[in-house]
Nucleic acid binder design. Structure first.
Ligand code: MN
Ligand code: MN
Ligand code: MN
Ligand code: MN
Lengths: 241, 241
DNA sequence: ATCATCTATTAGGCAAGCCTAATTTCGTCA
DNA sequence: TGACGAAATTAGGCTTGCCTAATAGATGAT
């Protein structure tokens, strides 16, 4: 069972990390089905594993109600997240990886590196606060500063914004963003948003405007640079939490 | 099963590597017991695993006669060895690890790194020919140049020699060698050898002579710098293969 | 040749994780 | 209230690797 360097199995670490990821940073109970989807494992198998993790005190499981990490579970999850993200930084900064290739590599390495190695990497990198996709890196002692970002899908027309965070699971998508000139830190203007789940069109300096599908636009975390536009588009909702 | 990056299980990779290590570089069949000892696994379990590896075409198993790697098995074993040794180099040269700490780390990482990552590390390092303990690193295409070294235990008195290779499994032993001023490349003179499995005494420039136990002396691979001493000691044997 | 002693294999079991199929529970809507 | 569909759990199985105990093969000494 202890094939990782902290005595947890690879499966356990991936479960904890996935639960943490699905629960936001706190609170919210995670459904069996969602977890099964995230891990590409059958719901029945997840049920079984949750019982075990619960027995080990890593999460609390109200049957038919979902799971919630315990303090211990959350701490261990954040440890894995830190490893994963430090690794991604190291691979891009020191070994010439593209941002679209690091996730798969880190997904395996996160279970094999020791704390010692992770901290040496962090030291060499100067304790980076964000990974190459803009995700915040938990500190050694398990703190994490979740940036409050707005999905591109909800940025009002006319706004000047900056791309701050991208979901890293799909390498293809990251390559696509690169081809558009979009990376973490890129500034752009939202020039159009079509209703009925239509695309979002953005303009980057020196490039023709591009229309992005709503599904993609929902996964792009942005920081607003220019506040309210003059006339708010009719399909905009009040900014939900 | 495919939890490594080449589709082999961690267990399989460790078995292949251990068999390769015990067989020298060729030929010699490996006994179940020796393998069990090297892997710290019961002989019964090893028997079972050998049947599986044999069925998968990685080795040939004559029951009660030991095993021998097939060409495929040897190729895969060398791939793991290359990973392991490149990793050890990278950890010492780029991340400030001491030579006594790298083995344990590499033992886990060797199953998680991709070929891509290993080759990037090798590139950054300039394709090192030896790992930090002096062991030769197989090339990408599975060739390995086994250096012909003489165990310190067999170096004649009066000879000037150089430490070229050290077994890396025991961190404590490596720390001990460091404390004596011995590392790969260190030159010294053999000043005494006691019969009846007695210790070997060596002299390093600027240090008082040190007597080393025979068991240790047998694991230190040396290159001779000065040939025949004047009077060969009476307990010396003709240099065996 | 025979026995004692290793060495190796087989027999029987177990835990971790995964799967599919069957069943139960939840929640919602008529 | 009752029934239906979705979500979750349970039942039953499988593979990988590992273990201990029991058996069988190889070997050297008598
Ligand atoms: Mn990632
Ligand atoms: Mn993972
Ligand atoms: Mn090593
Ligand atoms: Mn290993």
């Amino acid at each position: 069972m202890p094939q990782s360097s902290v005595g947890l199995s690879q499966a356990t670490e991936d479960y904890l990390k996935a639960i943490y990821g699905l629960a936001g940073d706190q609170e919210r109970a995670v459904q069996t089905t969602d977890l099964a989807g995230a891990l590409a494992i059958s719901p029945a198998s997840v049920s079984g594993m949750l019982r075990r993790l619960s027995k080990d005190g890593l999460l609390s499981h109200l049957p038919y109600r979902g799971v919630r990490l315990t303090a211990t579970g959350r701490r261990l999850a954040l440890r894995v997240v830190r490893r994963h993200r430090i690794l991604e930084c190291y691979l891009t900064n020191r070994l010439g990886y593209d941002w679209n290739a690091v996730h798969a590599e880190a997904e395996r390495l996160e279970h094999a590196v020791s704390d010692e190695l992770v901290e040496r990497m962090a030291l060499v990198l100067g304790d980076p606060p964000y990974d190459p996709h803009g995700a915040p890196i938990p500190t050694r002692d398990g703190e994490i500063a979740v940036p409050s970002l707005i999905p591109l899908a909800e940025v009002p027309i006319g706004t000047l914004a900056e791309l701050r965070m991208v979901d890293d699971k799909d390498a293809e998508r990251l390559r696509y963003l690169t081809s558009l000139g979009l990376e973490v830190g890129t500034r752009f203007e939202v020039v159009d948003r079509q209703p009925f789940d239509g695309p979002v069109t953005i303009g980057l300096p020196g490039r023709p405007p591009v229309a992005l599908g709503l599904a993609l636009a929902r996964t792009l975390g942005c920081r607003i640079h220019e506040p309210e536009p003059r006339s708010p588009p009719e399909d905009s909702l009040p900014a939900g939490a």
